[in-house]
Simulated scan of single mutants.
Amino acid sequence: MVLLVLALVWGFQRRLIYLPDTTAVAPAATVLPGARDVVLETDDGVQLGAWLVPPANPDRGIAVLVANGNAGNRADRAPLARALAAEGLTVLLFDYRGYGGNEGSPSERGLAHDVRAAQRFLTHEANRILYYGESLGAAVVTELATETPPDGLVLRSPFVDLASVGREHYPFLPVSLLLRDDFPLAEQLARVKAPVVVVLGANDSVVPPEQSRSVAAATPTLKNLVEIPGANHNDSALVHGSALIKAIVELADQAAR
């Protein structure tokens, strides 16, 4: 029986890790006036839906690449994009493969292809780029930053690696032995040269705050650690609240100097 359970976990683990909203997303302008729909092409041939959100005036001259967490789709990040655009930042929201009506199935390797397509697109839209990663997305943009450095990196609710956060939720399983996707975020930060900001919720029940603090401690280029009191993983204060937006804008201003 134990072997059967482990075999099932091995076979279906990605359904526990990735929780996509697979429905097609509405046109950008119906959700974010002025935004436009774009299509990203990955280097392994997958097409991804995305929204490019223009900045309000004055334009700070910097773009934010938003890498989502493991659930929902880009429409759920519209309030974040709206708040950042109001501060004069260009914003790219995109969906990974298997999310938001996109073809394919998510995996660590697949998401690495996806975020590179987003980064390539943004290089034609802005001279300076911040990477913003939310939870799982923090690992996605950290890996990208080791290869293609941004002007700044914001990690919201980051975990040390996928096994570490998995053990918090499945302490009865040999998570490290079973995982097919690693996302070794803290280890990869040692190779990141860009300035880094870590934002966490003090009451995060998905990624324990201790995990995010450990990520901050492992960051050689840490510029700021922002703890939002009382905030859980999906609370508005941590998703698009004023403290989060301020931390991103301050890093953008530093990058613009």
Rank of each mutant, 00 (worst) to 15 (best):
residue 39 V to Y: 15
residue 22 T to A: 13
residue 40 L to I: 10
residue 39 V to L: 14
residue 25 V to A: 06
residue 17 I to A: 01
residue 8 L to F: 13
residue 29 A to Y: 08
residue 25 V to Y: 08
residue 33 P to Q: 14
residue 32 L to Y: 12
residue 34 G to L: 10
residue 6 L to I: 10
residue 9 V to N: 03
residue 19 L to D: 04
residue 36 R to Y: 09
residue 19 L to M: 04
residue 23 T to S: 14
residue 17 I to S: 00
residue 32 L to W: 12
residue 35 A to I: 14
residue 35 A to T: 13
residue 18 Y to R: 04
residue 33 P to V: 05
residue 7 A to G: 11
residue 40 L to M: 09
residue 15 R to I: 01
residue 23 T to I: 06
residue 32 L to C: 11
residue 39 V to C: 12
residue 36 R to C: 13
residue 31 V to W: 01
residue 40 L to A: 08
residue 21 D to F: 07
residue 27 P to C: 06
residue 9 V to H: 03
residue 6 L to A: 06
residue 17 I to K: 02
residue 13 Q to M: 05
residue 33 P to R: 12
residue 20 P to V: 09
residue 30 T to G: 14
residue 16 L to I: 02
residue 15 R to K: 03
residue 30 T to Q: 12
residue 37 D to F: 09
residue 11 G to P: 00
residue 27 P to L: 03
residue 32 L to I: 15
residue 14 R to E: 02
residue 19 L to T: 05
residue 27 P to V: 06
residue 22 T to Y: 08
residue 35 A to S: 12
residue 12 F to H: 06
residue 15 R to L: 09
residue 15 R to V: 04
residue 10 W to G: 05
residue 32 L to N: 11
residue 7 A to Q: 04
residue 21 D to L: 11
residue 11 G to A: 06
residue 34 G to D: 14
residue 8 L to R: 01
residue 27 P to D: 06
residue 21 D to V: 04
residue 11 G to E: 09
residue 38 V to C: 05
residue 21 D to R: 11
residue 11 G to C: 01
residue 16 L to G: 01
residue 37 D to Q: 13
residue 11 G to T: 03
residue 31 V to R: 07
residue 28 A to C: 07
residue 37 D to A: 13
residue 21 D to T: 08
residue 38 V to D: 02
residue 32 L to R: 10
residue 37 D to C: 12
residue 19 L to C: 02
residue 18 Y to G: 01
residue 27 P to Y: 05
residue 31 V to H: 05
residue 38 V to T: 12
residue 38 V to Y: 04
residue 10 W to I: 07
residue 12 F to A: 00
residue 35 A to E: 06
residue 31 V to P: 07
residue 25 V to F: 04
residue 31 V to A: 11
residue 22 T to V: 11
residue 9 V to R: 03
residue 40 L to E: 13
residue 40 L to R: 10
residue 21 D to P: 06
residue 7 A to N: 03
residue 22 T to K: 13
residue 32 L to T: 08
residue 24 A to D: 14
residue 39 V to H: 14
residue 30 T to R: 06
residue 31 V to T: 15
residue 12 F to R: 01
residue 30 T to A: 14
residue 18 Y to W: 01
residue 24 A to S: 09
residue 14 R to F: 03
residue 25 V to Q: 07
residue 26 A to E: 08
residue 8 L to D: 04
residue 6 L to H: 07
residue 17 I to L: 11
residue 38 V to W: 05
residue 10 W to C: 05
residue 13 Q to S: 03
residue 15 R to Y: 07
residue 34 G to F: 15
residue 12 F to V: 00
residue 21 D to G: 10
residue 16 L to P: 00
residue 12 F to L: 05
residue 17 I to D: 00
residue 29 A to D: 14
residue 6 L to V: 13
residue 10 W to M: 02
residue 36 R to H: 10
residue 19 L to N: 08
residue 27 P to R: 02
residue 25 V to W: 05
residue 15 R to D: 00
residue 30 T to P: 00
residue 7 A to C: 06
residue 9 V to K: 06
residue 38 V to F: 07
residue 36 R to D: 11
residue 40 L to C: 09
residue 40 L to K: 12
residue 6 L to N: 08
residue 19 L to I: 10
residue 35 A to K: 06
residue 29 A to G: 10
residue 22 T to F: 04
residue 7 A to P: 00
residue 20 P to F: 13
residue 27 P to W: 04
residue 36 R to G: 14
residue 18 Y to N: 01
